[in-house]
Amino acid sequence: MNATQDARPPHAVRISSSPEDLAGLGPLLGAAEAGVGDVPALLAVAKDLGEAAPKPGSGRTAFLWEILASVTAVDVAAGRILEPHLDAAAILAQAAAGAEAANSVPFDGTWGVFAAEAPGLTLDAKETGGAVVLQGSKPWCSIAAQLDHAVLTAHVGGGRAAFAVDLHAAGVSFADPLWKSRGLREIPSGTVHFDAVPAVPLGGTGWYYRRPGFAWGGMGVAACWLGGAVAVARSYTDALKTAADGGRDPDQLALAHLGEIDRTLSGLLHYLARTAARIDAGELSGPGAWSEALRVRGSVAAAVDRIQALVGQNLGPGPLAFDEPYAKRMADLSLYVRQHHAMRDDAQLGALTFKGDHPW
């Protein structure tokens, strides 16, 4: 173990914070490990962290991403639960502080963020009697029936806007998601129906997507993916060491793959450290923020796919069949990283690059 790791608790992922700062994550990571597979317990962990976690752009963005990466390194599903809860806290704070602020929503209970769309499903927001109500259906609402509140997007005249909604309100109903996935099995994503449900506007039309926090939140998701990849890499390293202890040293191919994994992860950790510092310095608060988010997300997603492939090839079917934590992590991470839209996101980045939005 090198000197920079001495003060870290198990599972901690370092981006740029001191090992001593990361040592404070011990109780959080212990609680996440104890709650693996238990959604209410993991939601309680998220709720306890609540406002204590730093907001992106507040000067400790790297530490926020270390929290997300480290919890995901414990268990991918735990990170998948924590990330939207903390993102909702950031969105509410950004809305309250913004120029378009008209409402302040207390951050209590547990939260999700639902912004996906699907063919044949529409959620509309309409003003009725001086209040806004939601009518329609929202797809891909992960564990919605177990949450208290959500930030979601709905259609309004001229575009889409964000709203805060109480998921216990009359008129909210949850469709059976018929979740068949082998990854993130405890986090089913289904459709939520809204029938004249009161909602609180957050910003104006288009604000949700225009704010730099949209890009920052997207990079926070990538930090989760990276934490999962770090855990996969650690599983591989541990397996090689166990084999060596038994008298079977790794061959050149196994070491070459470990070297590729090391330089990939080391490069990405440095990249996230630099990007977090730029966010905190105010350098990514304009139109270029989304281009950087696409770079970060694409780079991390490609690394996840590559690392999973290398480790899977080297370790073979055994741990997928008989090692529950490893098999769960591989299945969970494979589904989670598919939130990245691969070549479609690269095409979007290419269009921005073509217009001159690039650092080179």
Rank of each mutant, 00 (worst) to 15 (best):
A31G: 09
R306V: 00
A32Y: 07
P250N: 10
S189Q: 12
A31S: 14
A34N: 00
T242M: 07
W179S: 08
R274A: 14
Q5W: 10
G136P: 01
V113G: 04
E20M: 08
G59F: 02
G356Q: 05
Q308D: 09
I261G: 08
V300W: 11
H257M: 12
T237S: 15
D249I: 01
A327Q: 06
K126V: 15
P212I: 08
Q313L: 11
I15T: 07
A52N: 10
L349M: 12
E117R: 15
A276N: 08
G259T: 04
L42R: 06
P56I: 01
A150P: 03
D245N: 05
F174Y: 15
G130S: 11
V76N: 09
A170T: 12
Q313F: 12
V113C: 14
A69W: 05
P10D: 15
G129S: 03
G220I: 05
E186W: 01
A327R: 09
D345K: 04
A88V: 06
G316P: 05
S235L: 02
A93D: 15
A293M: 15
E127T: 14
Y336W: 12
C224F: 00
A62E: 09
H270Y: 00
H11R: 14
R344G: 07
D124Q: 12
G157M: 04
D245V: 04
R344N: 05
G213N: 10
G298E: 05
K55F: 10
T353P: 00
S266D: 14
G57M: 07
V36E: 14
V74D: 06
A41G: 14
G59E: 13
S285I: 09
D166W: 04
D148M: 01
S173Q: 12
A162L: 13
K126R: 14
L294P: 08
T72P: 09
S173E: 12
A351V: 01
W111K: 03
G37A: 05
V230K: 04
G130R: 10
A62D: 12
L49A: 09
A293W: 09
L43W: 07
L320Y: 07
G288R: 12
V151Q: 06
Q308S: 06
V192I: 11
S181D: 13
T237W: 00
A7T: 02
F174V: 01
W216E: 06
M330F: 11
G312K: 05
A223K: 08
P139M: 07
S189H: 02
A41V: 13
V45I: 11
L333F: 08
D251F: 03
G109E: 03
T242P: 02
E66K: 12
L315T: 09
A46H: 01
D148E: 08
P56T: 10
R274I: 03
P212H: 08
G259C: 04
T72F: 01
E66W: 06
P56N: 11
G129R: 05
G227R: 06
G120T: 08
A170G: 13
P119R: 14
L152H: 04
V113P: 03
A89F: 05
I279E: 07
